[in-house]
Write a protein that binds this DNA or RNA. Structure first.
Lengths: 120, 120
DNA sequence: ACAAGTACTTACCCTAAAGTATGTATTATG
DNA sequence: CATAATACATACTTTAGGGTAAGTACTTGT
């Protein structure tokens, strides 16, 4: 008989990981399928909502807006709305968001090395 | 009436992201709550299965072995088993796995900057 | 009058990831 | 002979993320 595990929910483990692992902290911010893609598209500067939509055709509007809100709440992007009609809303990286670019570049570098078979 | 979206499943989107976004490629490999933590614990060298288990108390054995297998299948860690009893199995980073350390360090650096309020 | 464009919102569903609880093989040791 | 230690395996359930489909508000153009 194996020792019985005391209860441990996803939330508790999330908490554990967040406090103990900086990588998990980053994952929380930029994890999921869409957030990195959105950040990538914002890395060349400010974009309108509709521009992002056009540039990432596979994303649904729900996902796009949902992640933009999340990124905004996490302080990675800045939303600016001009009170005109039709609405004119732009998104751009904050300082913290731009601070992530080296991380993204490190990831990209690794990905290309793997694909080039450099680790074989 | 909003334009009707042509069908797009999770798998298709995954494919799109994987092909278009190196960050997603990396996420595929080290995403989830446990993989980065496991990699982190392996970054100081080879560890036995039971050592990992002890060092990451919140993880369940199912998650630990499942992610170790995944990491092995993705070529990030190397498993070595001595045919003795009780079993003696060790895990260590492969070259590709070690190649990820700069990524992890970049993440950690960013996480600490955020926590120190450097982006405010 | 109504379609079109912009930036959303909301209700509902489906799947993949994570967690729970248990079982297994082997041998040494008391 | 039963227990402990190691490194798993597996059936089942829960949860969170993602996707679908549709609606809203406001105004300009035809």
């Amino acid at each position: 008989m194996t020792a019985i595990k005391e209860s441990s929910t996803i939330q508790e483990n999330k908490q554990y990981a967040l406090e103990n692992c900086p990588v998990t902290f980053v994952m929380e911010k930029i994890g999921g399928y869409w957030k990195p893609i959105i950040l990538w598209h914002l890395s060349n500067g400010m974009k309108r909502y509709s521009e992002l939509k056009r540039e990432i055709p596979a994303i649904t509007e729900k996902m796009l807006i949902q992640h933009l809100k999340q990124l905004e709440a996490d302080g990675l992007v800045i939303r600016e709305a001009k009170p005109v009609v039709p609405p004119f809303v732009t998104y751009r990286l904050s300082n913290a968001g731009e601070g992530l670019l080296p991380v993204i570049e490190a990831m990209a570098a690794w990905a290309f090395k793997v694909k080039d078979g450099e680790f074989l």
